[in-house]
């Protein structure tokens, strides 16, 4: 069995936003409205003399206990056996309950107007979306199922993003998670997320 997960090393993320660009092109997100499946937050931590600039990439955490799925009234959000949480745009009515339930702010609305604009922006023939929905990252399932890595992982210049299979004990991602080097966000909420972070502040001494 495969159980996909991602580790993000905050020490090596340089904030180039290439992941955002790669994701936007791969998944045709409405960038003209500043809506992204993955987003890199830029934050300064500390005081003037000892300041640290942290780039914090975020995306859907593909939780094992996803609150977005349990509140979805139409069943549009579902979890695959490999751990990826998907949204079926045909079934989604766009009530927004998933966005309200998500602790990681992973959801955004794709409206009819975005679909029209998407056809112009990405090209009539290339644009895949036909309906509006509450969209989110799907770990680039279309690539992963063909043996490729998600677009954000493949493009990351600092190798800050690593993608792996938690059911494979030899996978570097599994080792980082098992050792506690990489840890999930807000685990106390019981969502059992599958995106893990390597802390950047501890290494600063």
């Amino acid at each position: 069995m495969t159980h996909y997960a991602m580790v993000i090393d905050l020490n090596t993320c340089v904030g180039c936003n290439a992941c955002m660009a790669a994701c936007a092109m791969e998944n045709q997100t409405p960038v003209w409205k500043n809506k992204w499946r993955t987003y890199v937050h830029d934050k300064e931590i500390g005081t003037a003399e000892d300041i640290h600039r942290r780039f914090f990439p975020r995306l859907c955490n593909h939780c094992d206990n996803p609150p977005c799925m349990s509140v979805c009234p139409t069943g549009a959000t579902r979890k695959m056996e490999n751990g990826i949480v998907l949204v079926d745009e045909e079934t989604c009515m766009g009530c927004g309950a998933c966005a309200m339930a998500c602790p990681y702010d992973a959801r955004y609305a794709v409206t009819y107007s975005d679909v029209r604009q998407g056809r112009e922006f990405f090209g009539e023939e290339a644009y895949r979306r036909t309906r509006p929905s509450m969209d989110k990252c799907n770990f680039c399932a279309q690539r992963v199922l063909n043996g490729r890595k998600p677009a954000c992982v493949e493009t990351c210049v600092g190798s800050a993003r690593q993608f792996g299979d938690l059911d494979n004990p030899d996978d570097p991602v599994t080792k980082m998670v098992a050792s506690g080097t990489a840890r999930p966000l807000m685990a106390h909420l019981g969502t059992q997320p599958n995106v893990y972070y390597v802390d950047d502040l501890k290494r600063r001494g």
């Binding site: 979805c72 009234p73 139409t74 069943g75 079934t91 766009g94 309950a97 409206t111």
Partner: peptide
């Protein structure tokens, strides 16, 4: 976002598919 998709939630069988969804 998609008014037509409301049909999925008007169908009473939705309670068997999504018994944990309060909407």
């Amino acid at each position: 976002l998609d008014h037509l998709a409301v049909i999925h939630v008007l169908n009473p069988l939705v309670l068997f598919n999504q018994p944990h969804a309060w909407i």
